[in-house]
Computed example of a mutant assay.
Amino acid sequence: MKMKNMLIGGMSLALVACISIGGTLAYLSDNTGTVQNKFQMVTNGIVLNLQETATPGTGYDVYVKDADGNAQGEKLTKATTLNADTAGENVGFVYKEIQPGATLAKDVKLSIGKQNEDTVSSWVFACVENANGAALNVTVDGVWKKVANQDNKALYLYQGTEASAGVENEKYIPKFNGVKPLTSLFTTVGVPATTEQSAEFTDITVKGYAEQVDNNTYAGALANAKNNFGFKE
């Protein structure tokens, strides 16, 4: 009986203590001034340039193509370069009077960066679309590694000298200042000797894509590049 009373008394004391704390507790508080954090993204972190140079030669004539696909003006008499950023959408070169077996001089080149500005570390991709198949032979330089192929399109990752960082098959161009010309994607287009004179061809199109490396993965950049060029999953 005595033990029972002691236990009850102990419980009562604990209950009283809890009530006492609840009745007197108060939270201390104060206010500070406001600090405004401003965030600004990198501007012009990646500038990618695409240009092509055509040279007239034996077995073909070259004209400049306008946005409507029409040849205009006199045929070229010397090597001429067009910049994709300034020439306008779909502007390029028209090759006429092509003879079977001709090798067309067409130098397609990408460069990355802008004079006196920093470019973030980047993977550089190029997409070549050629619906002509073997009827027009395009041989891409080996420093451009094929990373995807679908229908008439092939996607390449630049792995040349400027891509000096990263692991094998995932090299990228480290951060730099200025402009870096990259190895030409291809420099000629071959017409098989068996081509009939009545043959008709569709355009060969080339587009470039670059994506930052920092806070990113190669798998993510590759997926974005494929999506950018319309590759299907």
Rank of each mutant, 00 (worst) to 15 (best):
K106F: 05
C127G: 05
W144I: 03
T34I: 11
L110H: 05
G33R: 11
D118K: 15
A163L: 12
K145Q: 08
T103A: 10
G142N: 15
W144V: 03
A105N: 13
V35T: 12
V140W: 01
K65Y: 02
T43E: 15
A87I: 03
V42M: 10
A135M: 15
K75F: 08
K96D: 12
W123S: 05
K38F: 01
P56L: 04
W123M: 08
G160M: 04
T43A: 13
V94G: 07
T77M: 02
A79E: 05
A163P: 09
G101D: 01
G101L: 07
Q150L: 02
A165G: 02
T139G: 11
K106V: 07
G92I: 11
Q150W: 08
K146I: 02
T43R: 11
L82M: 05
W123G: 08
S111P: 01
A105K: 14
K145A: 10
G113Y: 09
K153Q: 13
G59V: 06
G113I: 02
T77H: 04
T43P: 05
A126T: 10
Y60H: 02
K109G: 00
V94T: 10
Q99H: 11
A87R: 05
A148M: 06
T34M: 04
A84N: 03
Q115C: 01
C127E: 14
N37Y: 10
T77N: 08
N90D: 15
A54Y: 09
G166S: 06
Q51N: 13
E129I: 01
A131M: 02
K109L: 02
G33W: 01
K78F: 04
L48V: 04
T53S: 09
N116E: 09
A79N: 01
L155A: 10
T161R: 12
G113R: 03
K109P: 00
C127L: 07
N83R: 06
G101K: 08
F93T: 07
A131E: 12
V108F: 00
N31D: 10
K146L: 09
E129A: 02
Y95M: 08
